[in-house]
Design a protein around this nucleic acid. Sequence first.
DNA 1: CATTTGATGTTCT
DNA 2: GAACATCAAATGC
Length: 201
Amino acid sequence: MTGKKLSANFYQRADVVQISKDLLGKVLCTNFKGQPLASGIITETEAYCGRSDKACHANNGLRTKRTEVMYQAGGAAYVYLCYGIHHLFNVVTNVKDKADAILIRSIKPLDGADTILSRRQTDNLSPKVTAGPGRLTKALDITTNHTGIDLTADTIWIEDRKIGYRAEQIASSPRIGVDYAGEDAKRPWRFYVKESEWVST
DNA sequence: CATTTGATGTTCT
DNA sequence: GAACATCAAATGC
């Protein structure tokens, strides 16, 4: 039940692609004040690199109010509102002033499944509940209010419960929904668990 | 089944 | 004013 919380030096490594793969099989937990703990196994991620990736909001050193948090040292949360409706949860990685981030696209519910179901207004536990970046944030009640918070603190964090996947269970593909990024859209920086149904389509 | 479309709000031009 | 790291419901086979 208890896992080992990932520490800042996990997030502050330089290779965002490697960290994306390492996150598969880790457990994303939320413990908001007055609410039951909810968690899920990470089954799908995407890497974004701020220095040479047009798909990243902080591409080419672009520094705005929205992307500022990505320039923090690794271990912070970056929550972005997409299409006016969906909150997308990202993990900031690398050291200060290197704007890398990892989008968490999908999880498999672990603790607090009933809480997750009530937030999603359904009683049918299927991949539709938490598979997809906009869905998992709703399931865990993550909003843009949480952007910039410390993932080594006790509100939102990621822990290692030794679930880890083997290399041959992990597949990669181009990222989803970033066709506007030209050549960079083809980078195989989406990683997911092959055998799992808990991934977005 | 597959494909289309409307909802919705923040950011940047 | 356009674009956008999406989802779910509605339509057309």
